[in-house]
């Protein structure tokens, strides 16, 4: 059953990911990406990472992609004029991709116990929100502070770059 769900979600996810690349209209691409991320959240659920899955839907599919759509609408981007695909880019890209997939598959099949199903979890009733929260605010306190600074810098940057008139 889990395998079936895995297949459904992953095939859908890859399909929508492919559509992002193929679609000419940016709005269609963005909507495909939303679907792709929702399927990805489904994959997280099959991995028992429910909190992460919810966050994925909220932050990515909800916030980030809305930002994308918002910008696309704001700039009133039309369907892309079909530009001639550079053959060199195509083959170069294909070569890079093949190399990457080869290295990745080689790395995967050499991992030990890679084709075994997941072990049973015994969480003892602690929800993963609690576990992640404790980890985040205790052990990972320092990176968390730095991430706070990152958000601050990003805010300054966005305000600076897009405010109409600087004071």
């Amino acid at each position: 059953m889990q395998l079936a769900i895995f297949w459904i979600f992953s095939v859908l996810m890859l399909l929508f990911a492919g559509l992002v690349v193929v679609m000419r209209n940016p709005v269609a691409s963005a909507l495909s990406l939303v679907m792709c991320f929702i399927c990805l959240a489904g994959l997280y659920f099959t991995l028992d990472a429910f909190f992460i899955g919810i966050i994925q839907i909220l932050v990515y599919a909800g916030a980030v992609m809305v930002l994308f759509l918002f910008i696309i609408m704001l700039l009133n981007l039309k369907e892309e004029v079909a530009r001639r695909l550079k053959l060199s880019a195509f083959f170069g890209g294909g070569l890079v991709l093949c190399g990457f997939v080869y290295a990745m598959v080689k790395a995967v099949i050499n991992l030990p116990e890679v084709w075994q199903t997941a072990p049973k979890l015994e969480t003892g009733g602690i929800s993963d929100v609690a576990r992640i929260g404790f980890k985040l605010f205790e052990t990972y306190n320092m990176p968390l502070q730095i991430v706070g600074v990152i958000l601050l810098v990003a805010t300054i940057g966005v305000v600076f770059l897009s405010s109409r008139q600087l004071r």
Partner: peptide, 20 residues
């Protein structure tokens, strides 16, 4: 993890500064 977040802090700051 620390490498990642600190590198990203630097990189994101530079994104802003380059396009300043």
């Amino acid at each position: 993890v620390m490498i990642f977040v600190s590198v990203e802090l630097v990189t994101i700051t530079f994104y802003v500064m380059v396009a300043m």
